[in-house]
Simulated scan of single mutants.
Amino acid sequence: MAVYGYARVSTQDQDLTIQVEALRAAGCEIVREEKASGTSREGRQELDTLLAFLRPGDTLMVTRVDRLARSIADLQDIAKQLKARGVALKATEQPIDTSTAAGKAFFDMLGVFAEFETSLRRERQMEGIAKAKAAGVYKGRKPSVDAQAVKALAAEGLGATEIAARLGIGRASVYRALGAGA
């Protein structure tokens, strides 16, 4: 009957220290840390490792449920997996107890709000991009492939494989660069 912590932030430049300290103070013997988006479970190896390791009677502790998942579907899926395996879910900053009807309802509401917050942030981001594009400020990411160099090497008679090798890019990038100016 161990208590395991899970700490997550969305980007590499964010710090996990506060979450880790709160989880350790709450009695977590092991804390798994991850810097990955919570909008999907894709690529979250630490969460997958922890979920696979938990045993009946263990407790999974997070600081807030939005650290576990940002979509209600993912959150409910994780909660269902934990319940089926006899693992408790707790949060240090929220009164969560999924074994009661009221606790389950509160848990689901927090998940809905986490998903809503993510949707609002995405909408604001898209509005900002549209405004920047209209002002001529946003031009997108700078090209990572020098199309002129690709075309110059192609003009010399080199094939896509050789061009890709010389420039250190993929063959698909060579074909895209050659097709862009056609």
Rank of each mutant, 00 (worst) to 15 (best):
R124C: 00
E156V: 01
T59D: 07
A130V: 12
R124P: 04
G5I: 09
T49C: 10
A164C: 04
A79Q: 01
V3C: 12
Q12V: 03
D48G: 14
F116A: 09
Q19T: 05
L50F: 09
I72P: 00
T118W: 11
E21V: 03
C28N: 06
I96E: 01
P56Y: 13
M1K: 13
E123V: 04
K133I: 10
G5L: 05
V9E: 02
A26F: 15
V20F: 06
R166K: 15
D108K: 08
G128I: 05
E162W: 07
E127L: 13
V65N: 05
L60A: 05
G159D: 14
Y6N: 08
V112H: 12
G170N: 13
K35C: 01
A73P: 00
Q148D: 15
G103V: 09
R124K: 14
A25V: 08
A165S: 08
R166E: 04
T17H: 10
A69S: 06
K80M: 06
E117L: 08
T59L: 12
R64A: 02
I72D: 06
A91L: 02
A26C: 09
R41A: 06
A52S: 11
F116Y: 15
D58L: 12
L51D: 02
V65W: 04
G128A: 13
V145Y: 07
Q81E: 14
E156A: 08
A149C: 11
T63P: 00
Y4G: 00
Q94G: 01
V20N: 01
L110C: 14
K83P: 00
T39D: 10
A177H: 10
Q81M: 06
K142Q: 13
G157Y: 12
E162C: 00
E162G: 00
G5P: 07
K83M: 02
A2M: 02
E115F: 12
M109W: 13
A84V: 00
A155F: 01
L60D: 03
A84S: 10
